[in-house]
Computed example of a mutant assay.
Amino acid sequence: MTPAQIEAYVDATSAALGLRLRPDHRAGVLRYFALAAEFAAVVDAVPLTPHHEPAVAFSPVVPREKEQ
């Protein structure tokens, strides 16, 4: 997304949700949204087929310490 598209999206969604962005928070919100859009573009670039199904449940595990 371009910076103008990000601003338009943030403005439209905040208005639709009734959220007022404080002027001192706006730059941070736009910066975070740009970062999130970059992450989404990376995920969106992976080709998926109907064979690729989401997991039924995610079960996190505690990381093990590296063996030396």
Results as ranks from 00 to 15, higher is better:
Thr2Pro: 05
Pro63Leu: 10
Ala41Asp: 15
Val10Pro: 01
Val46Glu: 14
Asp24Cys: 04
Glu67Ala: 13
Ala27Cys: 04
Pro50Val: 04
Arg64Trp: 06
Leu35Asn: 06
His25Asn: 06
Glu7Pro: 01
Arg20Met: 09
Ala57Phe: 14
Arg31Gly: 00
Val62Asn: 06
Ala15Leu: 09
Phe39His: 02
Ala57Met: 14
Val46Gln: 13
Pro60Val: 00
Ala37Gly: 03
Pro3Met: 09
Phe58Tyr: 13
Tyr32Cys: 03
Tyr9Ala: 08
Val61Asp: 05
Val43Phe: 15
Gln68Leu: 12
Ala16Asn: 06
Ala40Pro: 02
Arg26Asp: 02
Ala55Glu: 12
Arg20Pro: 01
Val61Met: 13
Val62Arg: 15
Tyr9Lys: 08
Ala15Phe: 07
Phe58Pro: 00
Ala34Trp: 01
Val56Tyr: 15
Arg20Asn: 07
Ala41Lys: 10
Arg22Gln: 13
Arg20Ile: 07
Glu53Trp: 09
Asp11Gln: 11
Glu7Arg: 14
Val43Ala: 12
Val43Thr: 02
Thr13Tyr: 13
Val42Pro: 03
Val10Met: 03
Arg31Val: 00
Pro60Leu: 00
Lys66Ser: 06
Gly18Pro: 02
Val29Ile: 14
Pro23Arg: 14
Phe58Met: 02
Tyr9Met: 11
Ala34Gly: 13
Pro63Cys: 06
His51Lys: 11
Val61Lys: 13
Arg64Gln: 13
Phe58His: 10
Val43Cys: 07
Ala4His: 12
Ala15Val: 02
Phe39Leu: 09
Arg31Asp: 03
Val61Trp: 08
Val46Pro: 11
His52Tyr: 06
Ala16Val: 02
Leu30Arg: 12
Ala16Pro: 06
Asp11Lys: 10
Glu7Val: 02
Val10Arg: 07
Gly18Ala: 00
Pro63Ala: 02
Thr49Asn: 12
Arg64Asn: 04
Pro23Gln: 04
Ala55Cys: 05
Tyr32Met: 04
Glu53Leu: 15
Asp11Arg: 08
Ala27Val: 05
Leu48Met: 08
Arg20Ser: 07
Leu30Phe: 10
Arg22Lys: 12
Ala16Leu: 07
Leu21Asp: 01
Asp44Glu: 15
Val62Pro: 04
Leu17Ser: 05
Arg64Thr: 02
Asp44Ala: 15
Val42Leu: 14
Pro3Phe: 14
Val42Lys: 10
Val61Ser: 13
Ala34Cys: 01
His52Asp: 12
Ala16Thr: 02
Thr2Ser: 15
Ala15Ser: 08
Arg26Lys: 14
Ser59Tyr: 10
Leu35Pro: 00
Ala15Gln: 11
Phe33Ile: 05
Val56Arg: 15
Pro63Ile: 09
Phe58Gly: 00
Leu17Lys: 07
Phe58Ile: 07
Thr13His: 07
Gly28Pro: 01
Ala34Asn: 03
Glu38Asn: 08
Ala41Trp: 08
His51Asn: 09
Ala8Ile: 03
Leu17Phe: 06
Ala36Ser: 04
Ala37Cys: 12
His51Ala: 12
Leu17Pro: 00
Leu17Thr: 00
Leu21Asn: 04
Arg22Asn: 04
Thr13Cys: 07
Tyr9Asn: 01
Thr2Trp: 05
Asp24Ala: 10
Ala37Ile: 05
